[in-house]
Design a protein around this nucleic acid. Structure first.
Length: 203
DNA sequence: CTTTGGATCGTCT
DNA sequence: GACGATCCAAAGG
């Protein structure tokens, strides 16, 4: 099976366009491989929920850099989260990687995640995904095209869903109504399944 | 299954 | 000094 690595062109574009394109792509680091099944778009100066809404700071500087870099930030005093930067230098937009389906290296992911876990909990959340792939602040600014820190994104031929799930973003205060979260319908690794509707527990 | 509260610290005001 | 782009364990139905 071939797994072409994605080039710089793939990552350049509005976050609203790049985010859903990343669904079903592969996140790769060494022997660790996961299929991206949930993402959110953050649109810098045009997005009150974005870390970059009020301009550049030391923390969010990577978001203002070139597309195809990884913006990694620390939050809640204990968690790392990873984003793919998707606009040219000077414009701060990025796509938060919220969940992945483990495909390879699952034993190492389990070890990295600690306590006994079901397969579907290994990377079902932005901080869990980083833990599973060993992504930390040391990886902030990593170049996904030059693969300077062993991390890249590949395409194994599985296209994004024709009709991805869409909702408001998770865990934010402002901009909650903007439908900028996408996921692969029916995938068990999605961090927060769509609000459980009465009598609609299955997909 | 759902809800609740605690952990824990870098960042920005 | 307040508050997170979160997670987990524990407790309740």
């Amino acid at each position: 099976m071939s797994r072409p690595m994605l080039g710089a062109g793939f990552f350049e574009g509005d976050a609203l366009e790049v985010a859903p394109k990343l669904l079903n792509k592969l996140l790769v680091r060494g022997g660790l491989v996961g299929r991206i099944v949930e993402v959110e778009a953050y649109r810098g100066s045009e997005d009150p929920a974005s870390h970059a809404y009020r301009g550049m700071t030391p923390r969010n500087a990577t978001m203002f850099g070139p597309a195809g870099r990884l913006y990694v930030y620390f939050t809640y005093g204990m968690h790392w989260c990873a984003n793919v930067v998707c606009r040219p230098e000077g414009i701060a937009q990025a796509v938060l990687l919220r969940a992945a389906a483990p495909l390879a290296g699952t034993e190492a992911m389990q070890a990295a995640r600690g306590s006994a876990l079901r397969q579907r909990d290994l990377a079902s959340g932005p901080a869990r995904l980083c833990q599973a792939f060993g992504i930390t602040g040391a990886d902030d600014g990593a170049d996904l095209v030059a693969v300077d820190r062993g991390i890249y994104i590949a395409d194994d031929g599985v296209p994004p869903p024709d009709h991805p799930g869409v909702s408001g973003r998770v865990g934010i205060r402002d901009g909650v109504d903007l439908p900028w979260r996408w996921w692969v319908p029916g995938d068990e690794n999605v961090s927060r399944p769509p609000a459980a509707k009465r009598g609609a527990s299955r997909l």
